[in-house]
Write a protein that binds this DNA or RNA. Sequence first.
DNA 1: GGAAATATTGCGGATTACGCAATTTTAGGT
DNA 2: ACCTAAAATTGCGTAATCCGCAATATTTCC
Lengths: 209, 209
Amino acid sequence: MTIREPPAEGLRERKKIATRQALSWAALRMAIDNGVDRVRVEDIAAEVGVSPRTFNNYFSNKYEAICGIVSDRAVRAKEVLLSRPGDEPLWTSIEHLVLQQYEGATEESREWSVRSRAVFEEPVLRGEYLKTTALLKRSMVEAIAERLGLDAEVDLAPHIVAGAVAASIEVALHRWRDTSPPNDLTAHLRRALAEAARGVNLPGTTREK
Amino acid sequence: MTIREPPAEGLRERKKIATRQALSWAALRMAIDNGVDRVRVEDIAAEVGVSPRTFNNYFSNKYEAICGIVSDRAVRAKEVLLSRPGDEPLWTSIEHLVLQQYEGATEESREWSVRSRAVFEEPVLRGEYLKTTALLKRSMVEAIAERLGLDAEVDLAPHIVAGAVAASIEVALHRWRDTSPPNDLTAHLRRALAEAARGVNLPGTTREK
DNA sequence: GGAAATATTGCGGATTACGCAATTTTAGGT
DNA sequence: ACCTAAAATTGCGTAATCCGCAATATTTCC
Protein backbone atom coordinates (compact mmCIF):
# COMPACT_ATOMS: atom_id res chain seq x y z
CA MET A 1 0.00 0.00 0.00
CA THR A 2 1.74 3.12 -1.22
CA ILE A 3 1.13 6.54 0.17
CA ARG A 4 0.40 8.96 -2.63
CA GLU A 5 -1.08 12.00 -0.98
CA PRO A 6 0.32 13.73 2.10
CA PRO A 7 -0.72 12.26 5.48
CA ALA A 8 -4.48 12.28 4.90
CA GLU A 9 -4.93 10.64 8.23
CA GLY A 10 -8.54 9.64 8.59
CA LEU A 11 -11.69 9.79 6.58
CA ARG A 12 -12.21 13.29 7.84
CA GLU A 13 -9.03 14.68 6.32
CA ARG A 14 -9.51 12.84 3.07
CA LYS A 15 -13.01 14.12 2.63
CA LYS A 16 -11.86 17.67 3.27
CA ILE A 17 -9.17 17.38 0.67
CA ALA A 18 -11.59 15.81 -1.77
CA THR A 19 -14.15 18.54 -1.25
CA ARG A 20 -11.56 21.24 -1.67
CA GLN A 21 -10.30 19.73 -4.89
CA ALA A 22 -13.79 19.11 -6.22
CA LEU A 23 -14.69 22.73 -5.57
CA SER A 24 -11.51 23.97 -7.18
CA TRP A 25 -11.86 21.79 -10.29
CA ALA A 26 -15.49 22.75 -10.67
CA ALA A 27 -14.62 26.42 -10.31
CA LEU A 28 -11.89 26.22 -12.92
CA ARG A 29 -13.95 24.21 -15.35
CA MET A 30 -16.90 26.55 -15.09
CA ALA A 31 -14.62 29.54 -15.49
CA ILE A 32 -13.20 28.04 -18.66
CA ASP A 33 -16.62 27.21 -20.04
CA ASN A 34 -18.56 30.32 -19.15
CA GLY A 35 -16.01 32.99 -18.29
CA VAL A 36 -14.78 33.92 -14.84
CA ASP A 37 -17.35 36.58 -14.07
CA ARG A 38 -20.28 34.42 -15.08
CA VAL A 39 -19.48 31.90 -12.39
CA ARG A 40 -21.21 32.32 -9.08
CA VAL A 41 -20.21 30.81 -5.78
CA GLU A 42 -23.70 29.39 -5.64
CA ASP A 43 -23.16 27.53 -8.92
CA ILE A 44 -19.85 26.05 -7.85
CA ALA A 45 -21.30 24.85 -4.57
CA ALA A 46 -24.30 23.34 -6.35
CA GLU A 47 -22.06 21.54 -8.81
CA VAL A 48 -20.19 19.84 -5.99
CA GLY A 49 -23.25 19.29 -3.87
CA VAL A 50 -22.45 21.42 -0.86
CA SER A 51 -24.03 24.58 0.47
CA PRO A 52 -22.69 27.98 -0.55
CA ARG A 53 -21.81 28.51 3.07
CA THR A 54 -19.59 25.46 2.99
CA PHE A 55 -17.84 26.79 -0.08
CA ASN A 56 -16.78 29.72 2.04
CA ASN A 57 -15.31 27.42 4.63
CA TYR A 58 -12.85 26.26 1.99
CA PHE A 59 -12.26 29.36 -0.11
CA SER A 60 -12.94 32.96 0.74
CA ASN A 61 -13.94 33.77 -2.83
CA LYS A 62 -14.32 32.21 -6.24
CA TYR A 63 -10.94 33.47 -7.46
CA GLU A 64 -9.20 31.54 -4.73
CA ALA A 65 -11.16 28.46 -5.75
CA ILE A 66 -10.27 28.80 -9.42
CA CYS A 67 -6.58 28.99 -8.54
CA GLY A 68 -6.83 26.36 -5.83
CA ILE A 69 -5.41 23.53 -7.92
CA VAL A 70 -2.40 25.58 -8.90
CA SER A 71 -1.89 26.79 -5.34
CA ASP A 72 -1.88 23.28 -3.97
CA ARG A 73 0.58 22.16 -6.59
CA ALA A 74 2.84 25.13 -5.80
CA VAL A 75 2.88 24.29 -2.11
CA ARG A 76 4.05 20.77 -2.88
CA ALA A 77 6.95 22.04 -5.01
CA LYS A 78 9.35 22.02 -2.09
CA GLU A 79 9.07 18.32 -1.39
CA VAL A 80 9.13 17.56 -5.10
CA LEU A 81 12.43 19.35 -5.49
CA LEU A 82 13.87 17.82 -2.34
CA SER A 83 12.91 14.36 -3.54
CA ARG A 84 15.46 14.59 -6.35
CA PRO A 85 18.83 12.89 -5.73
CA GLY A 86 21.06 15.13 -3.65
CA ASP A 87 24.03 14.78 -5.96
CA GLU A 88 22.08 15.90 -9.01
CA PRO A 89 23.07 19.39 -10.23
CA LEU A 90 20.67 21.92 -8.76
CA TRP A 91 19.64 23.25 -12.15
CA THR A 92 18.74 19.76 -13.27
CA SER A 93 16.57 19.28 -10.21
CA ILE A 94 14.89 22.59 -10.87
CA GLU A 95 14.22 21.62 -14.45
CA HIS A 96 12.57 18.41 -13.31
CA LEU A 97 10.48 20.31 -10.82
CA VAL A 98 9.31 22.89 -13.31
CA LEU A 99 8.53 20.39 -16.04
CA GLN A 100 6.59 18.30 -13.60
CA GLN A 101 4.76 21.35 -12.31
CA TYR A 102 3.42 22.09 -15.76
CA GLU A 103 3.21 18.63 -17.22
CA GLY A 104 -0.57 18.71 -16.96
CA ALA A 105 -0.51 21.16 -19.82
CA THR A 106 0.97 18.52 -22.09
CA GLU A 107 -0.92 15.53 -20.81
CA GLU A 108 -4.37 16.94 -21.07
CA SER A 109 -5.82 18.31 -24.23
CA ARG A 110 -3.94 21.23 -25.64
CA GLU A 111 -7.19 23.05 -26.09
CA TRP A 112 -7.95 22.80 -22.41
CA SER A 113 -4.46 23.90 -21.41
CA VAL A 114 -4.60 26.98 -23.54
CA ARG A 115 -8.01 27.94 -22.31
CA SER A 116 -7.11 27.45 -18.68
CA ARG A 117 -4.04 29.61 -19.18
CA ALA A 118 -6.28 32.25 -20.72
CA VAL A 119 -8.41 32.14 -17.60
CA PHE A 120 -5.42 32.60 -15.32
CA GLU A 121 -4.37 35.62 -17.34
CA GLU A 122 -7.67 37.41 -16.98
CA PRO A 123 -7.21 40.68 -15.11
CA VAL A 124 -9.70 39.85 -12.36
CA LEU A 125 -7.62 36.80 -11.52
CA ARG A 126 -4.30 38.62 -11.64
CA GLY A 127 -3.92 39.08 -7.91
CA GLU A 128 -4.89 35.56 -7.09
CA TYR A 129 -2.65 34.12 -9.75
CA LEU A 130 0.28 36.16 -8.49
CA LYS A 131 -0.34 34.62 -5.09
CA THR A 132 0.16 31.18 -6.55
CA THR A 133 3.42 32.16 -8.20
CA ALA A 134 4.52 33.67 -4.90
CA LEU A 135 3.73 30.36 -3.23
CA LEU A 136 5.76 28.52 -5.83
CA LYS A 137 8.63 30.92 -5.35
CA ARG A 138 8.57 30.52 -1.57
CA SER A 139 8.44 26.78 -1.95
CA MET A 140 11.45 26.86 -4.24
CA VAL A 141 13.35 29.23 -1.97
CA GLU A 142 13.10 26.81 0.94
CA ALA A 143 14.04 23.80 -1.12
CA ILE A 144 16.94 25.53 -2.84
CA ALA A 145 18.27 26.83 0.44
CA GLU A 146 18.23 23.33 1.83
CA ARG A 147 19.93 21.90 -1.23
CA LEU A 148 22.66 24.54 -1.11
CA GLY A 149 23.12 24.22 2.61
CA LEU A 150 22.07 27.83 3.08
CA ASP A 151 19.60 29.60 5.33
CA ALA A 152 16.68 31.25 3.54
CA GLU A 153 16.46 33.79 6.34
CA VAL A 154 20.09 34.81 5.99
CA ASP A 155 21.31 34.14 2.47
CA LEU A 156 20.01 35.91 -0.57
CA ALA A 157 21.10 33.37 -3.18
CA PRO A 158 18.05 31.10 -2.91
CA HIS A 159 15.76 34.07 -3.37
CA ILE A 160 17.63 35.24 -6.43
CA VAL A 161 17.59 31.80 -8.01
CA ALA A 162 13.90 31.32 -7.30
CA GLY A 163 13.14 34.80 -8.59
CA ALA A 164 14.99 34.11 -11.80
CA VAL A 165 13.30 30.74 -12.24
CA ALA A 166 9.86 32.20 -11.65
CA ALA A 167 10.55 34.94 -14.17
CA SER A 168 11.73 32.36 -16.70
CA ILE A 169 8.60 30.30 -16.22
CA GLU A 170 6.37 33.29 -16.75
CA VAL A 171 8.15 34.25 -19.94
CA ALA A 172 8.05 30.68 -21.23
CA LEU A 173 4.32 30.40 -20.56
CA HIS A 174 3.71 33.71 -22.22
CA ARG A 175 5.66 32.87 -25.34
CA TRP A 176 4.10 29.42 -25.54
CA ARG A 177 0.68 31.04 -25.50
CA ASP A 178 1.73 33.50 -28.20
CA THR A 179 2.90 30.88 -30.67
CA SER A 180 0.31 29.38 -32.95
CA PRO A 181 -0.55 26.72 -32.46
CA PRO A 182 0.71 26.65 -28.88
CA ASN A 183 2.37 23.33 -28.39
CA ASP A 184 5.48 21.93 -26.78
CA LEU A 185 5.41 23.99 -23.65
CA THR A 186 8.17 21.73 -22.40
CA ALA A 187 10.61 23.03 -25.00
CA HIS A 188 9.86 26.62 -24.07
CA LEU A 189 10.38 25.90 -20.38
CA ARG A 190 13.62 24.03 -21.02
CA ARG A 191 15.06 26.82 -23.13
CA ALA A 192 14.11 29.50 -20.62
CA LEU A 193 15.56 27.56 -17.71
CA ALA A 194 18.79 26.91 -19.58
CA GLU A 195 19.18 30.61 -20.11
CA ALA A 196 18.38 31.29 -16.46
CA ALA A 197 21.07 28.82 -15.46
CA ARG A 198 23.58 30.69 -17.57
CA GLY A 199 22.53 34.03 -16.14
CA VAL A 200 22.61 33.17 -12.47
CA ASN A 201 25.68 32.25 -10.45
CA LEU A 202 25.22 29.71 -7.73
CA PRO A 203 27.30 30.29 -4.59
CA GLY A 204 30.75 28.81 -5.09
CA THR A 205 30.44 29.39 -8.80
CA THR A 206 30.76 33.14 -8.91
CA ARG A 207 32.67 34.41 -11.89
CA GLU A 208 35.24 36.61 -10.16
CA LYS A 209 38.50 34.83 -9.40
CA MET B 1 8.46 76.39 -16.03
CA THR B 2 9.44 72.83 -15.35
CA ILE B 3 7.24 69.88 -15.97
CA ARG B 4 7.12 67.72 -12.87
CA GLU B 5 4.23 65.38 -13.39
CA PRO B 6 3.48 63.49 -16.60
CA PRO B 7 1.55 65.40 -19.26
CA ALA B 8 -1.36 66.45 -17.06
CA GLU B 9 -2.75 68.35 -19.99
CA GLY B 10 -5.70 70.34 -18.81
CA LEU B 11 -7.48 71.01 -15.59
CA ARG B 12 -9.54 67.92 -16.23
CA GLU B 13 -6.59 65.55 -16.14
CA ARG B 14 -5.01 67.24 -13.17
CA LYS B 15 -8.17 67.02 -11.15
CA LYS B 16 -8.51 63.34 -11.93
CA ILE B 17 -4.97 62.67 -10.80
CA ALA B 18 -5.51 64.73 -7.68
CA THR B 19 -8.69 62.87 -6.81
CA ARG B 20 -7.05 59.52 -7.37
CA GLN B 21 -4.13 60.43 -5.14
CA ALA B 22 -6.36 61.91 -2.48
CA LEU B 23 -8.44 58.73 -2.40
CA SER B 24 -5.35 56.57 -2.25
CA TRP B 25 -3.69 58.55 0.52
CA ALA B 26 -6.88 58.63 2.52
CA ALA B 27 -7.33 54.90 2.08
CA LEU B 28 -3.78 54.15 3.21
CA ARG B 29 -3.91 56.51 6.14
CA MET B 30 -7.20 55.12 7.36
CA ALA B 31 -5.93 51.58 6.95
CA ILE B 32 -2.89 52.42 9.05
CA ASP B 33 -4.96 54.10 11.73
CA ASN B 34 -7.89 51.73 12.00
CA GLY B 35 -6.85 48.50 10.32
CA VAL B 36 -7.56 47.48 6.76
CA ASP B 37 -10.84 45.73 7.37
CA ARG B 38 -12.29 48.54 9.43
CA VAL B 39 -12.08 50.89 6.48
CA ARG B 40 -15.14 51.18 4.29
CA VAL B 41 -15.32 52.55 0.80
CA GLU B 42 -17.97 54.91 2.09
CA ASP B 43 -15.55 56.35 4.65
CA ILE B 44 -12.78 56.90 2.16
CA ALA B 45 -15.10 58.66 -0.25
CA ALA B 46 -16.48 60.84 2.54
CA GLU B 47 -12.97 61.78 3.65
CA VAL B 48 -12.13 63.04 0.19
CA GLY B 49 -15.53 64.57 -0.41
CA VAL B 50 -16.77 62.48 -3.31
CA SER B 51 -19.60 59.99 -3.58
CA PRO B 52 -18.94 56.30 -3.02
CA ARG B 53 -19.95 55.77 -6.63
CA THR B 54 -17.14 58.06 -7.73
CA PHE B 55 -14.68 56.10 -5.65
CA ASN B 56 -15.56 53.12 -7.80
CA ASN B 57 -14.78 55.06 -10.93
CA TYR B 58 -11.19 55.31 -9.73
CA PHE B 59 -10.65 52.06 -7.87
CA SER B 60 -12.60 48.86 -8.05
CA ASN B 61 -12.11 48.16 -4.36
CA LYS B 62 -10.48 49.52 -1.26
CA TYR B 63 -7.42 47.29 -1.58
CA GLU B 64 -6.60 48.82 -4.91
CA ALA B 65 -6.96 52.25 -3.37
CA ILE B 66 -4.68 51.43 -0.44
CA CYS B 67 -1.98 50.26 -2.84
CA GLY B 68 -2.64 53.03 -5.35
CA ILE B 69 0.27 55.20 -4.30
CA VAL B 70 2.71 52.33 -4.59
CA SER B 71 1.25 51.25 -7.92
CA ASP B 72 1.64 54.70 -9.39
CA ARG B 73 5.20 54.89 -8.21
CA ALA B 74 5.96 51.48 -9.70
CA VAL B 75 4.61 52.50 -13.08
CA ARG B 76 6.95 55.48 -13.14
CA ALA B 77 10.00 53.32 -12.41
CA LYS B 78 10.76 52.84 -16.08
CA GLU B 79 11.27 56.50 -16.84
CA VAL B 80 13.17 56.97 -13.59
CA LEU B 81 15.65 54.29 -14.57
CA LEU B 82 15.93 55.57 -18.12
CA SER B 83 16.61 59.08 -16.87
CA ARG B 84 19.95 57.90 -15.47
CA PRO B 85 23.03 58.64 -17.61
CA GLY B 86 23.39 56.00 -20.30
CA ASP B 87 27.04 55.33 -19.55
CA GLU B 88 26.39 54.60 -15.90
CA PRO B 89 26.78 50.92 -15.01
CA LEU B 90 23.38 49.27 -15.08
CA TRP B 91 23.60 48.06 -11.49
CA THR B 92 24.32 51.58 -10.35
CA SER B 93 21.26 52.85 -12.17
CA ILE B 94 19.19 50.13 -10.62
CA GLU B 95 20.48 51.01 -7.19
CA HIS B 96 19.47 54.62 -7.68
CA LEU B 97 16.04 53.56 -8.87
CA VAL B 98 15.41 51.27 -5.95
CA LEU B 99 16.67 53.70 -3.32
CA GLN B 100 14.53 56.42 -4.82
CA GLN B 101 11.54 54.10 -4.94
CA TYR B 102 11.71 53.56 -1.20
CA GLU B 103 13.17 56.84 -0.06
CA GLY B 104 9.80 57.87 1.37
CA ALA B 105 10.42 55.32 4.07
CA THR B 106 13.41 57.29 5.29
CA GLU B 107 12.09 60.77 4.75
CA GLU B 108 8.85 60.38 6.60
CA SER B 109 8.60 59.27 10.15
CA ARG B 110 10.02 55.84 10.77
CA GLU B 111 6.93 55.00 12.74
CA TRP B 112 4.73 55.69 9.74
CA SER B 113 6.94 53.71 7.40
CA VAL B 114 6.89 50.66 9.59
CA ARG B 115 3.16 50.80 10.05
CA SER B 116 2.47 51.24 6.36
CA ARG B 117 4.70 48.27 5.62
CA ALA B 118 2.72 46.30 8.18
CA VAL B 119 -0.43 47.21 6.31
CA PHE B 120 0.99 46.05 2.99
CA GLU B 121 1.92 42.74 4.54
CA GLU B 122 -1.58 41.98 5.79
CA PRO B 123 -2.91 38.84 4.15
CA VAL B 124 -6.02 40.51 2.72
CA LEU B 125 -3.74 42.90 0.85
CA ARG B 126 -1.39 40.21 -0.38
CA GLY B 127 -2.83 39.90 -3.87
CA GLU B 128 -3.03 43.61 -4.42
CA TYR B 129 0.47 44.17 -3.12
CA LEU B 130 1.84 41.47 -5.39
CA LYS B 131 0.24 43.34 -8.27
CA THR B 132 2.27 46.40 -7.42
CA THR B 133 5.50 44.43 -7.30
CA ALA B 134 4.57 42.88 -10.65
CA LEU B 135 4.10 46.38 -12.03
CA LEU B 136 7.50 47.39 -10.71
CA LYS B 137 9.05 44.31 -12.24
CA ARG B 138 7.45 44.96 -15.62
CA SER B 139 8.58 48.55 -15.48
CA MET B 140 12.12 47.46 -14.75
CA VAL B 141 12.07 44.81 -17.47
CA GLU B 142 11.26 47.39 -20.11
CA ALA B 143 13.83 49.87 -18.89
CA ILE B 144 16.56 47.27 -18.50
CA ALA B 145 15.87 45.87 -21.95
CA GLU B 146 16.23 49.33 -23.41
CA ARG B 147 19.44 50.00 -21.50
CA LEU B 148 20.95 46.72 -22.65
CA GLY B 149 19.79 47.13 -26.21
CA LEU B 150 17.66 44.01 -25.92
CA ASP B 151 14.05 43.18 -26.70
CA ALA B 152 11.90 42.31 -23.71
CA GLU B 153 9.76 40.12 -25.95
CA VAL B 154 12.70 38.09 -27.17
CA ASP B 155 15.48 38.15 -24.59
CA LEU B 156 15.23 36.63 -21.17
CA ALA B 157 18.02 38.57 -19.49
CA PRO B 158 15.94 41.63 -18.56
CA HIS B 159 13.36 39.41 -16.94
CA ILE B 160 15.96 37.56 -14.93
CA VAL B 161 17.60 40.76 -13.74
CA ALA B 162 14.27 42.30 -12.79
CA GLY B 163 13.22 39.10 -11.06
CA ALA B 164 16.41 39.02 -9.04
CA VAL B 165 16.11 42.70 -8.13
CA ALA B 166 12.52 42.31 -7.04
CA ALA B 167 13.43 39.32 -4.91
CA SER B 168 16.26 41.29 -3.34
CA ILE B 169 13.97 44.17 -2.54
CA GLU B 170 11.46 41.92 -0.86
CA VAL B 171 14.11 40.28 1.26
CA ALA B 172 15.61 43.62 2.22
CA LEU B 173 12.23 45.00 3.23
CA HIS B 174 11.49 41.92 5.22
CA ARG B 175 14.75 41.97 7.10
CA TRP B 176 14.50 45.66 7.73
CA ARG B 177 11.12 45.10 9.34
CA ASP B 178 12.49 42.28 11.45
CA THR B 179 15.31 44.29 12.96
CA SER B 180 14.53 46.32 16.02
CA PRO B 181 14.36 49.13 15.78
CA PRO B 182 13.86 49.07 12.02
CA ASN B 183 16.00 51.82 10.61
CA ASP B 184 18.36 52.37 7.74
CA LEU B 185 16.33 50.62 5.11
CA THR B 186 18.77 52.08 2.62
CA ALA B 187 21.62 49.97 3.96
CA HIS B 188 19.56 46.80 3.70
CA LEU B 189 18.59 47.60 0.11
CA ARG B 190 22.15 48.43 -0.86
CA ARG B 191 23.50 45.21 0.57
CA ALA B 192 20.84 43.08 -1.07
CA LEU B 193 21.35 44.72 -4.45
CA ALA B 194 25.10 44.30 -4.23
CA GLU B 195 24.61 40.61 -3.69
CA ALA B 196 22.14 40.43 -6.55
CA ALA B 197 24.68 42.11 -8.81
CA ARG B 198 27.23 39.46 -7.88
CA GLY B 199 24.78 36.66 -8.49
CA VAL B 200 23.45 37.72 -11.86
CA ASN B 201 25.44 37.86 -15.09
CA LEU B 202 24.58 40.61 -17.48
CA PRO B 203 24.78 39.67 -21.17
CA GLY B 204 28.36 40.09 -22.38
CA THR B 205 29.56 39.35 -18.89
CA THR B 206 28.77 35.66 -18.68
CA ARG B 207 31.34 33.67 -16.83
CA GLU B 208 32.07 30.98 -19.41
CA LYS B 209 34.97 31.77 -21.72
C1' DG C 1 -22.27 2.05 20.93
C1' DG C 2 -21.71 6.66 22.87
C1' DA C 3 -19.50 11.05 24.00
C1' DA C 4 -16.38 14.57 22.26
C1' DA C 5 -14.53 16.83 18.34
C1' DT C 6 -15.19 18.64 14.01
C1' DA C 7 -17.70 19.83 9.69
C1' DT C 8 -21.81 21.46 7.40
C1' DT C 9 -25.63 24.25 6.97
C1' DG C 10 -29.21 28.12 7.22
C1' DC C 11 -29.96 32.58 8.51
C1' DG C 12 -29.13 37.45 8.73
C1' DG C 13 -26.75 41.72 8.24
C1' DA C 14 -23.24 44.65 6.38
C1' DT C 15 -20.68 45.64 2.32
C1' DT C 16 -19.68 45.77 -2.14
C1' DA C 17 -19.52 45.99 -7.54
C1' DC C 18 -21.42 47.99 -11.26
C1' DG C 19 -24.98 49.22 -15.10
C1' DC C 20 -27.79 52.94 -16.21
C1' DA C 21 -29.51 57.50 -16.69
C1' DA C 22 -29.63 62.18 -14.94
C1' DT C 23 -26.90 66.06 -13.64
C1' DT C 24 -22.86 68.83 -13.28
C1' DT C 25 -18.39 70.37 -14.86
C1' DT C 26 -14.74 71.30 -18.30
C1' DA C 27 -12.70 72.27 -22.95
C1' DG C 28 -12.28 74.79 -26.98
C1' DG C 29 -13.97 77.45 -30.65
C1' DT C 30 -16.42 81.77 -31.89
C1' DA D 1 -17.80 86.07 -22.41
C1' DC D 2 -20.87 82.47 -24.25
C1' DC D 3 -22.22 78.03 -26.12
C1' DT D 4 -21.99 73.29 -27.18
C1' DA D 5 -19.97 68.76 -27.12
C1' DA D 6 -17.36 65.72 -24.28
C1' DA D 7 -16.45 63.90 -20.01
C1' DA D 8 -16.91 63.28 -14.95
C1' DT D 9 -19.83 62.82 -10.95
C1' DT D 10 -23.71 61.18 -8.76
C1' DG D 11 -27.96 58.49 -7.05
C1' DC D 12 -30.42 54.53 -7.53
C1' DG D 13 -31.29 49.73 -7.92
C1' DT D 14 -29.83 44.96 -8.08
C1' DA D 15 -27.20 40.95 -7.70
C1' DA D 16 -23.61 38.99 -5.30
C1' DT D 17 -20.52 38.39 -1.46
C1' DC D 18 -18.40 37.71 3.03
C1' DC D 19 -18.73 36.12 7.43
C1' DG D 20 -20.44 35.52 12.47
C1' DC D 21 -23.38 32.77 14.97
C1' DA D 22 -26.06 28.95 16.42
C1' DA D 23 -28.15 24.58 15.16
C1' DT D 24 -27.54 20.19 13.03
C1' DA D 25 -25.05 16.30 11.13
C1' DT D 26 -20.96 13.53 10.69
C1' DT D 27 -16.61 11.41 12.17
C1' DT D 28 -13.36 9.94 15.56
C1' DC D 29 -11.83 7.24 19.15
C1' DC D 30 -12.35 4.87 23.36
